[in-house]
Simulated scan of single mutants.
Amino acid sequence: MRASLAALVLCVFGITTGEFVIAGILPDVAADLDVSIPAAGLLVTAYAVGMIFGGPILTALTARYPRKPLISVLLVIAVAGNIASAMAPSYEILFVARVVTALVTSTFFANAIVIATSTSPPDKQASTVSKLVFGMNIAMVLGAPIGTLLGDQFDWRTPFFAIAAVCALGLVLVVRLVPEVANSGGSAWSELRVFGDRNVQLAIAVTATGSAGVLMVFVYFASLLTDIAGFASGAVAVMLLVYGLGATVGNVIGGRLSDRSPKRAQLGLLTLLACALLLMWAVSDSTVLIAVMVFLVGALGFSVIPGMQARVLSTAAQAPTLAIAVNASAYQLAAAFAGWFGGHVIDTAGLRAVYPVAAAITVLGIAVSVAAWSRETVRLAS
């Protein structure tokens, strides 16, 4: 079990680093391929769109296939996509390679969660999910910075070759260590029917509304830290590392709390997150206090994720893989909304207003969570 989970965590680390690393090497990509920075930025958008739309579709279409062979094929595609990215002679080919790689990301992560939780005790599902999310944390804390360093020392293509190597190693370990786990065996249509369940709808809505607030702050972190708190531009990378460390700690703690009491953990952690965002607003011009709050908000923002994923798993037992893929798309949509709405808030009320608005959105997430758990209580009582 531990060896299997470690193999899956390594794969999540490699694939997620492939998503994050482009941000650190974007200027080099733009210069080498002779495109503008905004055009190069579309490579990030393309990856997100591939995950939002491609993930659920691919997951539904592969519902009949056994999970271990499926994730092995997905890893092969990830290796090929990153090699194609590294060798891309033009912007257009790099764009296509990024989209193809993005298509497998949500489907792989969804299947990895189902494989891991199906071999863990029922009362350890949230902490098991948190261990897989740990691969994402390490990608944020170490993978992206190391990839940027490789790009600085060699060229922007080197990080993609390194990511391909990590995914290839993960493929070998998956073949050797991960057990066979049956898929649902249903058609794409039968998988899609699970979304007619109001409990599933609410569980996914909790992810979207509960994450959008903290994502809004994260999207505008650089401006908030430099223009409001007074950090030098060079300190932003350090603060992002602090945020990533907080996310790692919060992910582990949140998984354990959700195992013990899913309802109390979800409602309590979201409430603490809303309070932390308001406190961040109150101390937004203090360099020292904001540094502490960056760690705390990172911890609380990621502490809710394992419980949210476990909640989706429990409500969508008939099609858990597709539900997790759609849940990942909901998270990406929340990020897209956070960027758009946060920009609107800044234009109309100023940069500092991002904090209280983010807290208000998180309160909406609490309200949706209360509705979801109340419905569950009524269902169990009847």
Rank of each mutant, 00 (worst) to 15 (best):
Y91L: 12
A144P: 14
V378Q: 15
T119F: 00
S72N: 09
D152E: 14
F13R: 01
G54W: 02
A112H: 07
W156T: 01
F231I: 10
A84K: 07
L240K: 01
G186E: 09
S190G: 11
T45F: 04
S303G: 10
G307E: 07
L225S: 03
G81Y: 00
G135M: 09
V363R: 04
V141Y: 07
T377L: 15
A359S: 13
Y243F: 15
I305R: 06
V345Y: 03
G41M: 08
L313P: 04
A335E: 12
S36E: 10
A335W: 10
T62W: 02
I228F: 05
A110C: 13
A237N: 03
L364S: 14
A88D: 01
T62A: 12
P121S: 13
S120F: 01
Q201W: 12
A349L: 09
I305C: 05
T62S: 14
D34I: 14
E92D: 11
A86P: 02
L173P: 01
A7D: 03
Q153H: 12
L279E: 12
V21H: 07
V370C: 08
M216E: 06
T101F: 10
M293G: 08
V174M: 05
A60S: 08
L202D: 10
G255E: 03
F20L: 14
K68M: 09
F195P: 13
A229Q: 00
L26M: 15
A319H: 11
G54F: 02
A371Y: 05
I346L: 05
F109N: 14
A276R: 01
G339R: 12
L270E: 07
G50T: 05
V236W: 08
L10V: 13
V288K: 13
A168W: 04
V104K: 01
A317Q: 15
R67W: 07
S374H: 15
A276L: 06
T321P: 08
A126R: 01
E376S: 15
L279P: 00
V252T: 11
R176F: 06
D32K: 01
M140D: 12
S120M: 08
A338K: 07
G298T: 02
L269E: 07
A299Q: 09
A358T: 06
V217Q: 10
F95S: 00
S72C: 13
R67A: 04
F134C: 09
L240T: 02
A63K: 04
R64I: 03
A353Y: 12
S211T: 12
V21C: 09
P66M: 05
L278N: 11
G170V: 03
G234F: 11
R256V: 11
D197L: 12
A310E: 05
V9F: 07
P89N: 08
I113K: 02
A247H: 05
L364C: 15
G41I: 13
A247R: 02
A336C: 09
G50N: 05
V194L: 12
S130R: 00
P179H: 02
A319D: 08
F20D: 04
F109R: 10
P320D: 03
C11F: 06
A336N: 13
L173W: 04
D152C: 07
G246Q: 07
E191T: 11
